[in-house]
């Protein structure tokens, strides 16, 4: 292998302007985290809602949940991103459409966060549904028998246990969302993947550029993993069979 390593490249100035590559990387890391966290918030909220709907005793609500889940998980993420970025704005009312296309600030960020959030919400919804359906049927009955309404039953009895049960797959999902945020480079969001490619073009240092992105993605994903593990430990139910080790 004939490769000229240059570990100083991170501190080198970019060709145009007085920024260093390190500044680019830090800013890119910020976008990656911002997109991932916003998308995760959307995914968790909507996923909990849609997952709940899919277990509701009403076939119309179940149907809405089914369409949502199948829609968002049967189309590739990258295609969805392009649809949100290029196609959806064309179908908005004239005024809004013009604004989105010309004046909307941080358009790439919002598009990526919404797209990734909705995509992941379908997957979270499936996990929440599985969690709810894994609970004994008597839990719902006991709750209703005490006078709780159905929404209260979900709020106080079913969802708190369902979420505890599905923390392990949700952890994977949280880590996935960080890694999946890399597709946002395709619509020009200056996140880690975008910037590492930009850095390759400008500096020619392929390995150093990709190494930075790889390391930072790994650190982010692993941090998410640690946070979820902490939550899992904190919310473990004493004496509950599924929580036993």
């Amino acid at each position: 292998m004939n490769y000229h390593w240059n570990w100083h490249v991170y501190l080198d100035q970019v060709s145009a302007g007085d920024e260093r590559y390190l500044d680019w990387i830090i800013s890119a890391l910020g976008w990656t985290i911002a997109v991932s966290m916003s998308a995760w918030l959307i995914a968790l909220t909507l996923g909990a809602l849609i997952g709940t709907l899919r277990t509701a005793p009403n076939r119309w609500l179940v149907a809405i949940g089914n369409v949502w889940v199948e829609g968002f998980r049967n189309v590739p993420l990258l295609v969805q991103l392009f649809l949100w970025f290029f196609v959806v704005p064309e179908f908005l009312p004239a005024e809004l459409s013009r604004w989105v296309k010309q004046d909307m600030p941080a358009k790439e960020f919002f598009t990526a966060a919404i797209c990734l959030g909705l995509f992941t919400s379908a997957r979270v919804a499936e996990q929440v549904r599985a969690g709810i359906q894994s609970l004994p049927r008597g839990q719902k009955m006991a709750s209703l028998a005490m006078g709780f309404t159905l929404p209260q039953t979900y709020r106080y009895v079913l969802l708190p246990m369902a979420f505890r049960i599905v923390i392990p797959p949700l952890t994977s999902e949280f880590m996935n969302i960080i890694k999946n945020s890399s597709v946002a480079f395709a619509i020009g969001l200056m996140e880690l993947t975008f910037i590492s490619r930009q850095m390759i073009e400008e500096s020619g240092q392929v390995f150093e550029s990709l190494l930075a992105a790889t390391l930072l993605y790994t650190i982010c994903a692993f941090s998410a993993n640690r946070v979820m593990t902490y939550i899992e430990k904190r919310t473990r139910v004493p004496g509950y069979i599924a929580g036993a080790k």
Partner: peptide, 20 residues
Amino acid sequence: LPKLRARVGMVFQHFELFPH
């Protein structure tokens, strides 16, 4: 119904305490 059920106590075969 919730109001009625709140006044009717029920005990189940598998206890159904809320584990969390």
